[in-house]
Design a binder for these strands. Structure first.
Lengths: 222, 222
DNA sequence: ACATATTTAGGTCAGTTGACAAGTTTACCC
DNA sequence: GGGTAAACTTGTCAACTGACCTAAATATGT
């Protein structure tokens, strides 16, 4: 369960779209390229991730890199897609346990996300993504697509707990819970000030979310 | 000059440390430089904010810019400090109203922050700051210093409401409320998907926070 | 008005960047 | 094994970056 340690920070999960060329070498190289690029992005940030730097760190020639990714934007797009896809997979294969009560599943969902926050990959990657999404419509759309998908199971749980609420209210509750946890990245993330208090944070957060969904009163209701 | 005018029109607040040289022209120029730099940062992101670009947009010569800020890092540091200082001032001159109940002050505090989220300056600046803080210790420390200061009044309110709690628990409650609101930036910020639901967001968030502080139970207490 | 410190202009410099255009080598299929 | 497409190498290109340096213009205190 502990994602903070080991090599997961340096060799993060990546879902690389295979190119149907019949050759395997190219796909391997592309995966190596994306892994290297992500590593640089995580370790040193956006500006350090130049094409030449990626090629050098990856151990391939610059020309070879430009063969696989003709422009830098091509590389960036596929990198973001690969990383985002890995999170999608992580979040869709969960909380499908009809034996648990909605409250228990809400607890597990939040715990899963909060457990992931302190990982180096998550702490470093998402702020870069947020910043980039402010200036790149493609990144913006792709990112919110991911968030909507990651939020979906939460919406389902809330719908079970509160069938009396409107769709909009349920969606907004899910959204609030979701971005509340995202906000912890800068404080409870990797090498952040309060990593030691993360257990208490989890207790407060999850308790608050469960209470919120259970006791939320609609605008009109009195 | 045109860019600088745009900048001053959209984000008036910027606290530029005056350099005690007796000359006023230089201070004016430095303010114009920082305003221009912030404008570029907000409009086009980090990498677009080169020294030459700042000089051009500011309407001054490149050499003049390098006179005022010998290196790019000097410029960046003073820019971040200037912007952060403006937020500090904004957040410390509030909620000093003994006539209001703690609950009301908590409400106002949260409302103040949430009202600021959709502004272009806040939506664009902070993600850049978060990303940068992951790779620059100076930015990291300065940022968390700001957050700690902005969180202080919240801690005071919570202390009034819950004198039974330990310092750590109160601090962590304040932290949770604080970063919960920060997380809304990517979703309820400027030109973000759900700006139209922001009223409901505020209702949910503030209601949830008030309930949390009121009803939070310590770990040991049963 | 003068002397002095501050501010601005102009230019040079080496280094890096991304895109591109040839080539050569390698891997795969029949 | 030979043919072909993919994978890779090598080199060039213009553009841009930040740091630096010197001289001119300007503002300030007296």
């Amino acid at each position: 369960m502990s994602q903070a340690d080991d090599a997961s920070a340096e060799m993060p999960d990546l879902i690389v779209p295979e190119r149907a060329s019949g050759y395997v070498k190219g796909n391997e190289t592309r995966e190596a390229i994306l892994r290297t690029a992500l590593s640089i992005l995580i370790e040193e940030g956006w500006q350090a991730m130049s094409m030449r730097r990626v090629a050098t760190d990856c151990g391939i020639k610059f020309g070879n890199l430009t063969y696989h990714y003709r422009t830098r934007e091509d590389l960036v797009r596929e990198l973001l897609d690969a990383v985002i896809s890995s999170y999608e997979r992580e979040f869709t294969t969960i909380v499908h346990r009809p034996d648990l009560s909605p409250e228990e599943r809400l607890d597990r969902y939040c715990r899963l996300i909060l457990d992931d926050i302190p990982s180096k990959k998550t702490t470093r990657f998402f702020p870069e993504l947020w910043a980039l999404s402010n200036h790149d419509p493609f990144v913006h759309d792709r990112m919110h697509e991911l968030y909507a998908r990651a939020r979906a199971p939460l919406g389902g749980i809330i719908a079970e707990m509160r069938p009396d609420l409107s769709q909009e209210e349920r969606d907004t509750l899910a959204l609030f819970i979701s971005f509340s946890m995202e906000g912890s990245t800068m404080f409870a993330g990797f090498e952040k000030p309060i990593v030691d208090r993360i257990a208490l944070i989890k207790r407060i957060a999850i308790g608050s979310f469960v209470d919120l969904v259970r006791n939320y009163r609609s605008v009109g209701a009195e």
